[in-house]
């Protein structure tokens, strides 16, 4: 047996468990993909320069997902004014997606204006860790990935199969992220546009001592707010 064979055998004996795929993490580049959608074949790079809300749902023609799609359609135009595109996904066929979108239009009077990925082979779902085997091995959970114009993952939300998402929170999250980028601030609990934002804590003693005389609204040296 050559040394290379020995090395391979040793490595094989250490990998009895499948190696977990590297899933997206905040601040990392969003995994690239090309997929069939209800708007044709689309690549993630096609969205470069725009924010993207990539979200998965468990299955077409199910009630909670239908309410979510109606809700996402309801915020689509508001998102677009913020430079954000929606991109849905489930492990269903293009035909199923098309039939469901037409059904929503017919039964609820709502047009689905965004593309839906037909991820029949689970390629994108696997890449993004959208399947939670503890819940279902065949359906995607209710995941949301917010990807910025440079292609970086900026936020992730995971909801279980039983619980529909709050699209107002997704709008709020986009507003908060864009406010952070524009003004270099953080946003406090339950922040909404118009509220004061948090000034990042000082990183030096000199800066901390100066903070209270800075004209900012400070409760203490580490806790200052300002209007944005």
């Amino acid at each position: 047996m050559s040394s290379q064979d020995v090395s391979s055998t040793l490595n094989a004996s250490h990998t009895t468990q499948p190696t977990p795929a590297t899933l997206p993490r905040l601040g990392m580049a969003a995994p690239l993909f090309e997929a069939v959608t209800t708007h044709g074949r689309i690549r993630l790079e096609d969205f470069r320069g725009s924010w993207v809300v990539l979200f998965s749902h468990p299955a077409d023609f199910t009630p909670v997902c239908t309410t979510e799609f109606i809700a996402f359609a309801g915020i689509a135009s508001e998102l677009r004014t913020r430079g954000v595109e929606l991109l849905g996904l489930s492990i269903d066929s293009p035909t199923s997606h098309i039939a469901w979108a037409l059904n929503i239009k017919q039964k609820f009077g709502i047009e689905i204006p965004f593309p839906i990925i037909a991820d029949s082979n689970k390629e994108v779902a696997t890449l993004y860790g959208m399947v939670s085997p503890g819940e279902s091995k065949t359906e995607t959970s209710r995941c949301v990935f917010v990807i910025d114009p440079q292609g970086t993952v900026r936020a992730m939300i995971y909801y279980p199969l039983t619980t529909g998402r709050n699209t107002e929170e997704i709008l709020r999250l986009i507003d908060a992220l864009q406010t952070t980028d524009k003004h270099g601030v953080a946003t406090p609990a339950n922040w909404k546009p118009g509220d004061k934002a948090i000034v990042p804590p000082p990183s030096t003693l000199e800066e901390a001592e100066g903070r209270l005389q800075s004209g900012l609204e400070c409760t203490d040296w580490y806790f200052c707010k300002r209007t944005v």
């Binding site: 708007h39 044709g40 074949r41 689309i42 690549r43 096609d46 969205f47 320069g49 725009s50």
Partner: peptide, 8 residues
Amino acid sequence: PLFRVRAG
């Protein structure tokens, strides 16, 4: 939308 134009 720009993404649609790029894909198209």
